[in-house]
Amino acid sequence: MTTVLFIVFGGMALVSALLAVTRQNPIASAIWLVGMFFGLAGVYVVLEAYFVAAVQVLVYAGAIMVLFLFVIMLLDLRTKQLDEEGPPKMPIWGVLAAVLFIVASGWALMDAVGTPGFFPDAEERAALELDGSAKAIGADLFGRWLLAFEVTSILLLGGILGAVILTKRRLT
């Protein structure tokens, strides 16, 4: 049953992601991306990570994609305009970035799989209290991974500052 559900939700996420990047209409793309997030949330539920699943829907589907939709609707992008722009100008950089990402994340994953306790069995899970609850995640996030968490927030702050400087040419 769990495997069947995993395949159903995983397949839903994959198909939605594929449709999201191939649609001509930006609104349709955004909606398929929302479908992808729901598929992903379903996968999290199958993995008994209920908190992550709820936050996935709350943050990505409920807030970030609504913001995307808002921007797309505000700019009123038409399919025709996108056609006139033609294919991407420098696809080589995109391909390079994709290869780099796949290699880096693959490397990190292979590295992690080797470490003991990456796939905890029932006993280890009970010892770690990995019950997918907010408490377990909070303890991990603000305990073991505190530094990584803070570094990520600084990264995001940099992103926000960059966006502000790019959009506001004149800072008075």
């Binding site: 909606i31 209920y50 908190f51 709820a54 936050v55 829907v57 409920g62 609504v66 939709l69 609707m73």
Partner: peptide
């Protein structure tokens, strides 16, 4: 649900797609 509050906030936030997409 152990995450009942989050579930309600998450699902209730989806309803706006109906309004935004209906408008679009």
């Amino acid at each position: 649900l152990n995450i009942g509050v989050l579930y309600i906030l998450a699902i209730a936030g989806i309803g706006v797609y109906g309004i935004a997409l209906g408008g679009w």
